[in-house]
Design a protein around this nucleic acid. Structure first.
Lengths: 220, 220
DNA sequence: CGCTGAATTGACGGACATCAAGATGTGTGG
DNA sequence: CCACACATCTTGATGTCCGTCAATTCAGCG
């Protein structure tokens, strides 16, 4: 799954996983910075580039005409995003926090893919991940609020280095829009998890796991 | 969006869009029949084949541990399914009704794709469609029951030939599991749409559109 | 016909949204 | 360093949409 269980790293520092995974993109990309909430690309724009996160977090999302926002994915350091099978972006992308992103022209990659087998293989793998994430996500959206929140915490845990505690790198509103809930429901659910002793909050963004077994059980 | 408004075709015949689109698969496939509810493939099985529907309907779905079923997609005549970026199926596939399906070995296709450019292009297009469908679907799952049902009817309309009336080729339970609702809610919502005069039911499976504008308006 | 699965309808309760207020945290300027 | 402004997060009260449970009705078929 996305759950690449990294061996525990009991650093007390914020997550930001260590060194940037030197993917194939690292060799040819141009670094660029995005401030909080800055747009990386917009829905329906031509998909000209691929992006790899060096630091920070990026969210992709789509808007419903009535103003609701569905966050499609969060990308963390090392993750590659902007992959589309078509030549137009299906969603918009924004920096959740100050972020550094490597940018590579799609045409360059596609050209290389012509003769360089591993590149085109990489593209397929990325597509496969996207598909799997999306399928997983639609499964999440039919669960109860508690299951969604627990699932989210576990997903974030699996993607960050620490196993005992994680840093939520996005505001509650983003979590709500990712899970298809309201911010109040997310907040209340977390409070409830704290009260039942399965997690503890050091700050509102920092979550300690006190009973991982119970969490897994709640993740029906 | 998915609603590719086809120019009207006032046939009174059941949907089953005309002749089978003679895709590249048509040239080399082996036909096979599946009875109602027969399994085409199962989740986690190796993805060895691609499938093209000749007649009937196939659904793909995933199960939640608590028994809930999330239908991922319905495939109608002409549609190709079984495309996975990885080499394992992420979902199971079953015939909704008696169906005829063309089957092609994946390895054959991939081999051809090596030197035959249009084949590998086709694969990308299919992936793109899957991605788009999935994204669309997760947007649907955060809408209200009425919006989901209306959206479903419009989606089915856009995929079938007739514009004034459509045949729902699957039972209510399948619609419910596709939309993340219960069968009762689907039924009640349809009844409500009938009462407000935007649709009419000839039989429970056959839907007449009486006020397309209103439908589009309800599809927030 | 009567049998069987599918679909509809009704009564009721609960989970989550909504509306509103307060608490906590954070950055800025004096 | 403090104070104020503003955003984020939490908490409470209330409403409603939809799920659950249960009973009918309807359609297809031997």
């Amino acid at each position: 799954m996305l759950a690449t269980a990294a061996t525990a790293n009991h650093s007390r520092l914020p997550v930001r996983s260590g060194p940037i995974p030197e993917g194939p993109l690292g060799l040819m990309g141009t670094p660029m910075r995005f401030t909080r909430n800055a747009e990386v690309y917009g829905e329906d724009e031509p998909a000209e580039y691929l992006y790899q996160i060096m630091s920070g977090v990026v969210r992709t999302y789509r808007m419903l005409d009535d103003g609701r926002r569905q966050i499609v994915a969060f990308y963390l350091p090392g993750d590659i995003f902007g992959v589309e099978a078509g030549d137009v972006h299906l969603s918009s992308a924004e920096a959740v926090s100050e972020s550094q992103v490597l940018i590579v022209k799609r045409s360059t990659i596609l050209a290389r893919a012509e003769y360089q087998k591993d590149i085109s293989k990489l593209l397929w793998i990325l597509m496969a991940q996207e598909l799997q994430r999306l399928q997983q996500h639609s499964l999440v959206l039919i669960k109860s609020a508690e299951e969604r929140v627990v699932g989210f915490l576990l997903e974030m845990a699996s993607r960050s280095s620490g196993s005992m505690a994680i840093e939520l790198l996005m505001p509650r509103q983003d979590i709500a829009d990712y899970l298809g809930l309201t911010i109040e429901t997310v907040s209340r659910t977390i409070t409830h998890l704290v009260q039942s002793g399965v997690i503890a909050l050091e700050t509102s963004r920092r979550v300690h796991f006190r009973n991982r077994a119970a969490l897994n059980r709640l993740n029906a």
